[in-house]
Design a protein around this nucleic acid. Structure first.
Lengths: 141, 141
DNA sequence: TCATTTGTAACTATACTGGTTACAGTTATG
DNA sequence: CATAACTGTAACCAGTATAGTTACAAATGA
């Protein structure tokens, strides 16, 4: 499975929650749409909860609903909330520190990594959850 | 190891090649700086070769050099040349097609994925290999 | 009290990444 | 021309992250 699909799943989950409005939704129901296990959904909801994007309630008649309206949630918020990895990884092993290039390249790449991550976050912030819902309703576009 | 560091390694490799100018460099030498196996480097060079960023020569006294000068190579070219995965992955399993949201969300996310990938490519294109070399020489910045 | 639901820990299967060995093909050089 | 020194690749392996699964404690409404 490798490549991390948490962001995709998170957008899907939040779109589902939006569709039920004020009504709380159960993890089983969301899982059925995402086609995965309810525990996977609950794990994801835990992260979205920490980022104050959703509100959950335990116990019978419990469930989860959006913490804000879909116009007030943007995809940048979601990207930051979930553990999607970085856009590109740094070296697995540290480069040779005796080589002048090996010694300095990591810091350069690390700065670049942060900058690209910001760029992605900014771009995603241009889309609200509401706009995703509209795209889904229109059947893509 | 999971997260893909091919882009980072590719930038490192090309910076090394740039440092030797017109001189061909052996994969062993590059591998020593990256701190990995020469085969890993040769695999990467194969991709960079297909993208016309480097020129390799087999046989004794063989090796690899840049195909263009460092000012004419930008990081967007490198990003496109190597198999870094996508910024975020789509669903592992296809969502439930009987759910109106599950049915359409994939296409929306797929378009978004392409757009983000383009955004990253454009941002990276702002940096030339030359500028990376200068950052490395100055010791980061 | 009891059924229902979330929150979490623990374990597993899968698959990707990069390291390694091995070897065929190419080429400079004595 | 024989040989040594490279690259290009295939094949295999070890490590690890992802997400699927089971199990169960805690919370809560009825």
């Amino acid at each position: 499975m490798a490549a991390n699909s948490q962001f995709s799943m998170a957008v899907h989950v939040l779109t589902m929650l939006a569709s039920s409005g004020e009504e709380k939704m159960k993890s089983d129901c969301v899982a059925a749409s995402v086609n995965t296990n309810p525990v996977v959904i609950r794990r994801l909801l835990g992260q979205l909860n920490q980022a104050n994007l959703v509100i959950s309630q335990t116990g019978a008649a419990g469930g989860t609903r959006l913490a804000k309206c879909p116009k007030e949630i943007n995809l940048g918020d979601i990207y930051k909330a979930v553990e999607c990895g970085e856009v590109f990884a740094l070296h697995a092993k540290s480069p040779n520190q005796d080589c002048p290039i090996g010694k300095n390249i990591e810091a350069v790449l690390c700065n670049l990594q942060k900058e690209i991550d910001n760029t992605v976050g900014e771009k995603l912030s241009q889309y609200t959850l509401q706009s995703v819902i509209e795209m889904v309703e229109r059947g893509e576009v």
